[in-house]
Amino acid sequence: MTERARSDKRTRQDLEGTGHIDPSLSVEIFLKRALDDPSVALTQFQRFGTGHSGDTYRAVLHRSTRPDDDIVVRLSPTGVRIAGPADVGRQGRIMGTLHQNDLPAPAVLASDSTGAVDGRSIAVMSLVSGAEWHEFAERHSHDETANAAVSALKAIQTLSVEESGIAGDPRMPPEGEIARWVPLVERGPDHVQDAADELRVQLLRELNRSDPSAEPVLVHGDYHFGNLLFGPRTVNAVFDWEIAGLGHPLTDLACLTVAALRRRYEPEPNPTGSVEVTGARLAELYGADPDVLSWHVAASCFKYAAILAYNLQLSRRGRLRDPIYEELQGTMAGLLEDGRAVLDHGLTAFWPDAHAPQA
Rank of each mutant, 00 (worst) to 15 (best):
D190I: 12
G89Y: 06
G19I: 12
E16T: 14
A59K: 12
A110P: 15
P290W: 13
R74T: 05
N101I: 12
P189T: 04
H296N: 00
R10H: 12
R120M: 00
W133H: 13
Y223S: 01
E198T: 11
G119C: 04
G279W: 01
K9P: 14
Q44V: 10
E186K: 11
L153H: 06
P357T: 00
S151R: 03
F48D: 15
A341N: 08
T348R: 15
L336R: 08
F239Y: 15
V161F: 03
E206G: 06
L256T: 00
G165A: 09
G165E: 12
S300D: 11
F48P: 09
P85E: 03
D69I: 13
H355E: 08
I178F: 04
K32W: 13
H52C: 12
L312P: 02
D102F: 15
V297F: 02
Y325S: 04
T11I: 15
I94A: 07
L109V: 07
R66S: 13
E284N: 11
V185A: 14
V161N: 06
P189D: 02
T50A: 11
Q313F: 05
T2I: 09
G92N: 02
R139V: 04
L204R: 01
A123P: 07
L261P: 10
F48H: 13
L250D: 00
T50R: 15
R58Y: 14
G221D: 01
H140C: 00
P38Y: 09
P269D: 08
H52T: 15
I71P: 05
Q193G: 02
F136S: 04
A179L: 15
R233Y: 00
S126C: 15
A146T: 03
D70P: 09
R187G: 15
G130H: 01
D37C: 05
G119W: 11
G279A: 01
F225P: 07
I94F: 06
A359P: 01
L35G: 02
Q44M: 10
S76R: 08
S160G: 15
G334V: 10
Q44T: 12
H62R: 13
D69N: 10
L312D: 11
R180P: 09
